[in-house]
């Protein structure tokens, strides 16, 4: 009786409930439909796809398109499947994500706990990096990669993604550390901890949520990037996004839709896994600071 709002919620009525569920179920179907189309068609034979009904479940499940996409189909001039490109992407993404996260954390630490004159100007400049369109940096970046001798290599791609991601990672960590009590840093200083000891022993152990947010963000962006990959990769350093494009857009022969679907799912799988594994930390990280401990 003393909680009228709660009473209302309980008495909302059966009709409203049904309505809510109907709408929700509709949206679930709406959002899952593309995934369903991709998965079901990747398991069909080419003949069945040509037969028409795109939404129908596979009559005769076959994993051949997946095998094709992974290791046999023609990409560019060689019939290697997506496998080597998938590995290229992994080799590129892991160091790029770790490096940009670590550097972003260090930047955030310095900008909040070791403030120096002009710190806001530098932070502003780094923020600008978040808003610069990819296309603008292409030509200067190509020059720099050339001068460093990194053009067309995975090392070059790692550098490009690290540099480009730094704006975001710095922003994340700076804002997270701005709310981190400075008294803790001071206490550690009095205890004799140096610059890196404070960072490693005091700040990093408390940075779990923001590290997860940064890693998800960076992983998704770097993995899904097409433009840098298409512009700066060489013959042996092509990432999977570019390879997928080469597969789907090749103009010779028959369009093997089932293989294309399987390839597209393969290319999207790692980001999906990262979200499923650490999604709850992502939400927790975004909410960090909302509830004070």
């Amino acid at each position: 009786m003393s909680h009228p709002a709660q009473e209302n919620a309980i008495n909302a009525g059966r009709l409203t409930r049904i309505l809510i569920y109907t709408v929700l179920i509709f949206f679930v179907i709406y959002y899952l439909l593309p995934l369903w189309v991709m998965v079901s068609n990747s398991l069909k034979t080419l003949d069945e796809i040509r037969g028409g009904d795109m939404l129908a479940p596979p009559a005769d499940i076959t994993f051949e398109p997946w095998r094709q996409a992974w290791s046999q189909t023609q990409i560019g001039v060689e019939a290697t499947g997506l496998k080597p490109y998938f590995l290229n992407s992994i080799i590129m993404v892991v160091p790029a994500v770790l490096l940009s996260t670590l550097l972003g954390a260090l930047n955030g630490y310095v900008m909040t706990k070791w403030e120096f004159p002009g710190v806001n100007l530098i932070f502003g400049a780094m923020l600008l990096a978040c808003f610069i369109p990819f296309q603008i940096v292409l030509i200067p970046m190509a020059r720099i990669l050339g001068m460093l001798g990194l053009a067309g290599t995975l090392g070059g791609l790692i550098m490009v993604h690290t540099v480009y991601g730094l704006g975001f990672t710095t922003l994340f960590f700076r804002n997270y550390y701005a709310a981190f009590p400075t008294e803790l840093v001071r206490a550690a200083q009095i205890d004799g901890a140096g610059f890196f000891q404070v960072f490693r022993r005091i700040l990093l152990p408390s940075s779990g949520p923001i590290i997860v947010v940064t890693i998800i963000w960076q992983f998704t962006n770097v993995w899904n990037d097409f433009l840098f990959g298409a512009s700066f990769s060489g013959y042996s350093s092509t990432p999977i996004t570019v390879a997928l494009n080469n597969l789907v857009n090749s103009s010779t022969g028959v369009k093997e839709y089932n293989v294309h679907f399987a390839g597209a799912i393969l290319a999207a799988l790692p980001t999906l896994v990262v979200y499923i594994v650490s999604g709850r930390y992502f939400v927790r990280g975004l909410m960090a600071g909302a509830v004070k401990g």
Binding site: E183, L184, R186, Q189, I190, A193, I202, S206
Partner: peptide, 17 residues
């Protein structure tokens, strides 16, 4: 600070969480 031979107790206690 660590070389001044002092110890400090902070308002927020500043315990390492």
């Amino acid at each position: 600070p660590s070389q001044r031979d002092i110890a400090m107790v902070f308002q927020s206690y500043a315990l390492y969480p």
